[in-house]
């Protein structure tokens, strides 16, 4: 296994660990770190004029993730 492959795997794992850490931190009493759900809710409120841009972008991204991993 090459060094770059190991580094990439470590990076992906680190990102996952950071996500879990932030989620746990966000669920603590009085935490100022939003949970992922709260952050998504905030992003989904973003509008450009009358277009719910944040909503479309986040839902579209998740749709693309499913398409990319299951149907590509």
């Amino acid at each position: 296994m090459s060094v770059t492959r190991i580094a990439t795997l470590v990076a992906y794992g680190l990102a996952l660990v950071l996500i879990v850490t932030l989620e746990v931190a966000g669920r603590r009493e009085g935490s100022r770190v939003p949970t992922l759900a709260q952050l998504c809710g905030f992003v989904m409120r973003y509008r450009v004029g009358r277009v719910p841009f944040g909503r479309v972008a986040l839902l579209g991204f998740w749709w693309w993730v499913g398409f990319h991993f299951f149907a590509r």
Partner: peptide
């Protein structure tokens, strides 16, 4: 769910794992 009207500046911490992942994903 009720709307989340604002989040604290600590929300920026979520950029860290996103940027770590995105960097390695895009480079790969």
């Amino acid at each position: 769910h009720p709307a989340v009207r604002q989040v604290a500046r600590q929300a920026l911490w979520w950029l860290v794992p996103v940027l770590v992942f995105a960097t390695f994903e895009l480079v790969s």
